[in-house]
Design a protein around this nucleic acid. Structure first.
Length: 453
DNA sequence: GCTATCGGAAGCTAAACGTA
DNA sequence: ACGTTTAGCTTCCGATAGCA
């Protein structure tokens, strides 16, 4: 249940487990110190002035928080919540703060709420999530998961739960985690906001009247995005013979077909790769697999035609990046990938970080097999040719057929490239193993020289 | 020193997708 | 049904520049 840092990684599976486990049975929790009678969960003592953050790193403003139903926020807000589909349930023993700071009034209020709404449940509900409880403006707003873990981003060290034998929790150089909603001014200025309205920055700048929550667009994957993408890709692509694709097939379904059909469908689904017909070696496309694998030799005689995908980064450069740099890399990697991020050209990119990328790259060299395609002359990177200048676009689910040796293996270029000025990191995912590949700065430089030649 | 600007890293959400 | 993936959004760090 705990990761190597001793933290409980957030997942709904863990939430569900916790609901069925003794996490909701405070009396079964190991106690490192005394328990609060009011809440019956294990406390950890912590100096308030040193610990303005809860277990997940969410900022807890200690003094003078709004009081709701007689419940001071600072006394109750620090408990991590799990969602039991009925309400947010505080998880005992995850606390960074002492419940002894709860007032008698708070105790009575919570007990009253629990009795009214869940008299038979042996769980404890956060009062702000009780049906009739009016949520304070902060720290919870109406956010459904107010304690969604965030300490992975901010340098807010959670307590060394569960193995901490110290009653003192070291928070270190913790910074306030993200606010749930930034104000319009802070958002526009790309600066940190705080939950107050007006926020401290607006107060300082005298913009108190205009300090309102920034409007937020709907997040999440759009409805029918895949379908529409496929339709768009299909309508804009032709194969080398000039024939239009008559139908679309999802990549994962195409992968189960016979090879020629699969390739045909891939050619319809994917976009245009750069094609070399045998006299060209991968070294002429220095950023892609051939070069990255250190492979410059001729293909096996059995391979009639080699298709060398142009480096996504090279493609990006070729599409008139005009300085608009809101173009970014896709972040998330498939779970089977080693999680790694980063642009090696970022001004913040440290040599150490680049070294890390390089190490992975070199490790990948030993594993990746040459990538070639048969029966297949022209494929497109979806949408590339129609991409408006300066707008982000992405390569995704790009597949290759590895016909090196006797086996045929589908290899997916598993990730999305949409960066204008940074070197894209990339992940290449064969079905049978996993590895990643990332450009180094030097490689990018070489590509630039090659491209400008 | 203060403030504004902004590129982009890191994180969040929810629909689509995969799988048992 | 449920877990995973992923598109598209968010916040805000940190570099840089302008100004008094």
């Amino acid at each position: 249940m705990y990761n190597q840092n001793g933290n409980v990684p957030f997942s709904w599976a863990n939430v569900q487990r916790s609901q069925n486990s003794d996490l909701l049975e405070p009396e079964n929790e190991p106690t490192s110190s005394s328990s609060s009678q009011a809440f019956n969960y294990t406390e950890r003592t912590i100096a308030i002035e040193h610990a303005p953050y809860n277990y997940y790193g969410r900022y807890q403003e200690r003094p003078a928080n709004p009081v709701h139903s007689g419940v001071p926020v600072q006394d109750l807000s620090h408990r991590p919540m799990v969602n039991d589909l009925h309400g947010l349930v505080p998880v005992p023993n995850w606390d960074a703060y002492s419940p002894h700071t709860a007032t008698q009034q708070a105790t009575a209020a919570v007990q009253s709420l629990e009795q009214v709404h869940h008299p038979t449940h042996n769980v404890q509900y956060h009062p702000y999530h009780m049906p009739h409880a009016q949520a304070p403006a902060w720290p919870y707003y109406n956010h459904p998961y107010p304690d969604y873990p965030q300490h992975t981003r901010r340098n807010s060290t959670p307590p060394n739960y569960p193995n901490s034998d110290s009653s003192e929790v070291t928070v270190g150089k913790a910074k306030p985690p993200y606010v749930i909603k930034a104000c319009a001014s802070c958002k526009a200025s790309h600066v940190a906001c705080d939950p107050g309205r007006p926020c401290q920055r607006c107060i300082r700048l005298g913009k108190t009247d205009t300090c309102v929550d920034a409007t937020r667009k709907k997040r999440g994957r759009p409805k029918n995005s895949t379908k529409s993408q496929q339709q768009q890709a299909t309508s804009s692509m032709t194969d080398s013979t000039g024939s239009s694709s008559a139908e679309t097939t999802p990549l994962h379904k195409a992968a189960n077909r016979d090879l020629p059909d699969q390739l045909l469908e891939l050619s319809q689904i994917l976009g245009e790769y750069e094609v070399s017909s045998g006299e060209q070696t991968p070294a002429e496309y220095p950023n892609m697999l051939g070069h990255s694998l250190g492979r410059v030799s001729s293909p096996p005689a059995s391979v009639e035609r080699r298709v060398t995908p142009l480096s996504p980064s090279a493609v990006l450069r070729s599409y008139a990046m005009d300085g608009h740099s809101s173009i970014r890399k896709q972040k998330s990697l498939p779970s089977s990938f080693s999680a790694r991020r980063g642009s090696s050209t970022s001004p913040n990119s440290s040599p150490k970080r680049r070294h890390s990328h390089r190490s992975t790259f070199e490790a990948a060299q030993t594993n990746i097999q040459p990538v070639m395609l048969q029966h297949h002359q022209s494929v497109q990177y979806p949408g590339a040719q129609h991409r408006p200048t300066g707008q982000p676009f992405k390569f995704q689910d790009t597949s290759f057929i590895d016909v090196h040796g006797s086996t045929q293996t589908r290899i997916s270029l598993a990730h999305t490239y949409s960066t204008a000025s940074s070197a894209p990191s990339r992940a290449i995912h064969p079905l049978s193993s996993q590895f990643t590949y990332t450009d180094s700065d030097q490689e990018i430089e070489n590509q630039n020289m090659h491209h400008n030649r």
